[in-house]
Design a protein around this nucleic acid. Structure first.
Length: 669
DNA sequence: GTGTTACGAGTTG
DNA sequence: CCTACCAACTCGTAACAC
């Protein structure tokens, strides 16, 4: 929902480059969204005007600049990488990969993505019919959603209230009523489950279903089935749903947007139609491609999924940056069609954070932090988690975000421990003016044993929605900090969707202790590792020094993805650039995909030597053993599609040629 | 060499 | 009048410590 407001730019006109792309950035997801807006450029202008000069704006400007820089590097890399390679050959190899993917295409499952129309707004409408036909937004400081009338003015979810008001002076603000949404969500999901008990909720207002079996059993067509489902939802709740029917999740999701308010779209289940469908599709529509990747891809000429094919050679040569595998699949319209509820075990972290009016009073901030620690504690105990790494996160009033982590030898979850660790981390930062502070715990241990009967584990009690509960609860200190906690409530209600559901799903199993798995006990020593001596100044500097002004030596820049410059803590450590660190190859060969030189080390791991792969990457690949995360070697997707792959580029290669028999052994490790 | 820690970036709803 | 731009989560990457 939100702040993708800062979409991207097209080739910015020469005049004021920055401004152009910035204006777009500040503007809106517009590019994608269906039928809104009178005149998007006018809207963009207003938004830019209103934001002008704010800290937020300045920060966006900076980020925009950084992105532009990053793009330039990408282009440069491209020019280098293209030199001297046999384009034809690369092309042929990619085409082979494509053919292989094509042969894996599965059209047997009927997947549906259902998506409620303006969910919160619709729910509000039910209890307040007065609002019918009027432009209104739900939420206060930040809108969680907007009625369709409001959208015509360019008002969107995630937009700050004051900007919305500017765009639409008559805008009515309605408060969030969270529990209502949750109740409604439960009712709706229950209906969906009649069609697929195994459905995958993906937020409180949407989900994926596999209706293959249902249609079969009831001898009904997919379209009729979905129509009926939508009708029933409407009859039972008076809310409308849109749906997409397709052979996999990605396509279904895109399709559900096609006839958005209260409609459905069925994509024919044949290769030709699918490829045609993808042909003109903006890559931005593809789940997993956000505003940054959109711009990155655009810079090499890719705007639509058809362009992926056109530029496949460059993508192959720069797999690392773009993710060949993922993009090829996208081009073909191939993605996962697996639908099943999220399993509890999949959770990797749990946290809490809070935004407030910028504050630099240490005591108040610590109070805040303590409060967050206690929220987190109850969240964790309520849901049965403990964890070994605690991460502090804070955002300066300049919107710059930092995280600081501390790992422990034991699992923690109590407020006391969380707070004291968080406090230490925070205090070490010195004097800072902050607008957000939060804690997150990772390396989790699940206190609720893997349930033997994993079936009933989801959704039973969705209203246990912890986050909200807590926040509504105990707010002793808060009043001291907040003039009125209106805004605060607003945050509480800000984005309930997904996580609440997940929590809900997790809620069920009985608590039972599992023995302390000591797997992670090893690096005891390393945890005690002192902070890099030089790093202190690297912290966000308090006082008057703006971060950008701090000389590099002292405050190294944030790493930039393409050729990472090394993060703060690295200052003064190694001096070589690991990015170009060439592994000690035992044998070299020609990469079958891109024809660059390929080095294979004595462990059977492969790397291209002209760029990208560092030793640690190799190490990681090695330690990854299974080759799941897509063999960190090259030619695997680096873009992380939310829809799981079925085959990755490297596997394919390996299967193709019997090279490196050892690779396999090693991988099985 | 292996395993671990730390931090920024990116996406989503 | 002023209002003042999210939260949760995952991933990739580099460095450290034995």
């Amino acid at each position: 929902m939100q702040m993708q407001n800062l979409t991207t730019s097209h080739q910015e006109p020469p005049q004021s480059q920055e401004t152009e792309s910035l204006v777009q950035r500040l503007a809106g997801p517009s590019s994608g969204k269906a039928g809104l807006a009178k005149d998007q450029t006018e809207i963009n202008r207003i938004i830019a005007d209103v934001s002008k000069g704010s800290k937020f704006y300045e920060n966006e400007k900076k980020k925009d600049r950084e992105l532009t820089e990053r793009i330039n590097k990408v282009l440069k890399t491209r020019d280098e990488v293209v030199k001297g390679v046999d384009i034809r050959k690369v092309e042929a190899n990619v085409d082979r990969l494509l053919a292989e993917m094509e042969s894996q295409r599965d059209l047997t499952q009927t997947i549906v993505h259902v998506d409620m129309d303006a969910f919160y707004a619709s729910v509000e409408l039910l209890s307040n019919p007065e609002l019918a036909g009027k432009p209104f937004g739900v939420g206060r400081g930040v809108l969680t959603t907007a009625s369709y009338e409001a959208r015509k003015y360019g008002v969107r979810s995630g937009m700050p209230g004051f900007i919305a008001k500017r765009l639409c002076p008559d805008l009515i603000f309605v408060q969030n009523h969270f529990s209502k949404y949750m109740d409604m969500s439960n009712r709706i999901m229950a209906i969906f489950k009649r069609y697929d008990p195994n459905m995958l909720p993906a937020g409180c207002d949407e989900g994926y279903l596999n209706i293959t079996a249902y249609c079969e059993e009831h001898s009904i067509s997919a379209e009729d089935c979905v129509r009926e489902m939508r009708r029933i939802v409407f009859e039972e709740t008076k809310l409308t749903v849109s749906a997409g029917i397709a052979p996999n999740k990605m396509l279904a999701k895109i399709c559900s947007d096609r006839n958005k308010p209260n409609g459905q779209f069925h994509l024919p289940f044949d290769r030709k139609s699918i490829v045609a469908f993808m042909h003109d599709l903006s890559i931005r529509k593809v789940p997993g491609i956000g505003r940054v990747n959109e711009r990155l891809l655009e810079s090499i000429g890719i705007k639509t999924c058809a362009d992926i094919f056109t530029h496949r050679v460059v993508i192959a040569l720069m797999d690392k940056q773009f993710g060949l595998h993922f993009l090829l699949r996208t081009h073909l319209g191939i993605a996962s069609n697996e639908v099943q509820p999220i399993q509890r075990e999949e959770r990797k972290s749990i946290g809490a954070e809070r935004t407030f009016p910028p504050l630099d009073d240490r005591d108040k901030l610590l109070q805040m932090l303590e409060h967050i620690a206690s929220e987190l504690e109850s969240d964790m105990s309520r849901n049965g988690w403990m964890g070994k790494t605690v991460t502090l996160k804070y955002k300066l009033d300049t919107y710059q975000v930092f995280t600081r982590a501390k790992s422990l030898t034991r699992y923690v979850s109590s407020k006391q421990e969380l707070f004291s660790i968080g406090r230490d981390l925070f205090v070490a930062e010195g004097h800072v003016k902050v607008r957000l502070i939060g804690l997150r715990v990772t390396r989790l241990k699940d206190l609720r044993a893997p349930s033997p009967a994993g079936i009933k584990r989801f959704f039973e009690s969705a209203n246990s929605s912890p986050r909200k509960r807590q926040k509504l609860g105990s707010e002793g200190m808060r009043d001291e900090i907040y003039e009125n906690d209106e805004q605060e409530k607003q945050h509480m209600d800000a984005m309930p969707g997904f996580y609440e559901h997940e929590e809900a799903m997790h809620h069920v199993n009985a608590v039972e202790e599992s023995e302390d798995d000591q797997r992670g006990m090893v690096a005891e020593k390393s945890r005690e590792r002192p902070r890099p001596p030089v790093s202190a100044p690297a912290r966000p500097l308090t006082s008057l020094v703006k971060l950008e002004d701090v000389p590099r030596k002292i405050s190294p820049p944030k790493p930039k993805p393409l050729g990472r410059e090394r993060s703060k803590s690295d200052v003064g450590q190694r001096s070589k650039d690991p990015y170009f660190d060439v592994p000690n190859g035992k044998q070299a060969q020609v990469c079958p995909i891109c024809s660059r030189t390929l080095v294979t080390d004595n462990q059977g791991l492969n790397a291209h030597v002209d760029f990208c792969l560092s030793r640690s990457a190799i190490q990681e690949a090695r330690s990854n053993g299974g080759g799941t995360s897509a063999d960190k070697s090259e030619h695997t997707a680096s873009a992380k599609p939310p829809f799981g792959p079925t085959l990755n580029g490297w596997d394919f290669l390996m299967a193709q040629k019997e090279t490196n028999p050892r690779t396999k052994d090693k991988k099985r490790k």
